[in-house]
Amino acid sequence: MAVGERDESGDSGVVSAVRDVLDGSLRARLGVTEDQNNLMGFLFVAPNVLMFSVFLLGPVLYAFYISFQEWSILRNAGTWVGLANYVDVLTPLPVQGGLTNLQLNTSVFTDPSVNLFWYSLKTTVIYAVGTVPLQIYGGLAVALMLDKRVRMKKAYRAAYFMPVMLSGAASAVMWRWFLAADGVINNFLEPIGELVGVQLAQNWAGNPSYALGGVMLMAIWGGIGSNMIFFLAGLQNVPEELYEAARIDGASAWQRFRHVTWPNLGNTNFFVIVMAIIGAFQVFGIALVYSEGGPVYATTTIVLLIYQRAFEEGKMGVGAAMAFILFLIIFAFSYHQYRHRQQEEVTY
């Protein structure tokens, strides 16, 4: 990631050459040999290297292998099926026809019975598009408001941060009640609806058209607080002189935000967007606990689909194949954002 590279470049060249010389002389002074340093270094990192090999790197390779297997949890063994799992998951493709007359096959996105993977990918994208901007810019708005001279700032900050402390499972159970047909939210909506003559109260969780909306509402509610904290931290790093200069130049509040605050929040913004989207693509717990993926697949997100295939139906091979495709999507996105960010930095 960006961090590592920046650190390395910071250490490179003359600085690191000098450091090497100094380290060497120090080592000589202390009587510590290079071998001893190597040994100690390795011993100190050994537990982590072991854990990462067994629970991260090994499993990634193992998952890749499993994705080519038809796995039976009952026999705890698999049979090699080649690309069959990938084909099963991805077909019918969102495009059809030959290379010359390629057409979009939108039915995979509109009908879950055509291809559930593409359908749940669409659901996940809708979820991401609907939640991420509101989580981030809601968080930014709150941070900007609280960065001003507001009384009881600490209490407000605590209030916005409270939902962040919550387990997704707990928040899903709570919102399932608030959004129930006879729940608290409808209790508010009913009189308003009567006033304007519209049926506002709905069976929010039981209706396929609204169920995903409930999950999204919950995610926005739980996501604003953490982004607020990130932006509050980011705002501390904006040099005050810049505001001063802008003020002397007669810049309006909006201009100050646009030309001083916003460019200086670039790093925070990049991080927050990447994390939020990666998180959104892996949404699972709240969708499972809120509505178990239903009704009629309305809240079946990709990770929920992987969970159902692998752990409820025991199709580990299919699950692993889906997980790898999701990995590729997330990787491509992060890489794209990273390159985009680098280009932006050059233009500043």
Binding site: M1, V3, G4, N48, F52, V54, F55, L56, L57, G58, P59, V60, Y62, A63, I66, W71, N76, I278, F281, Q282, V303, I306, A310, F311, M316, G319, A320, A323, F324, L326, F327, I330, F331, S334
Partner: peptide, 19 residues
Amino acid sequence: FMSTMMIPGMVTLIPVYLI
């Protein structure tokens, strides 16, 4: 170490469970 942060938890879930 840092690049392992890129691995989404979902990918390792199935193999770690099987192990």
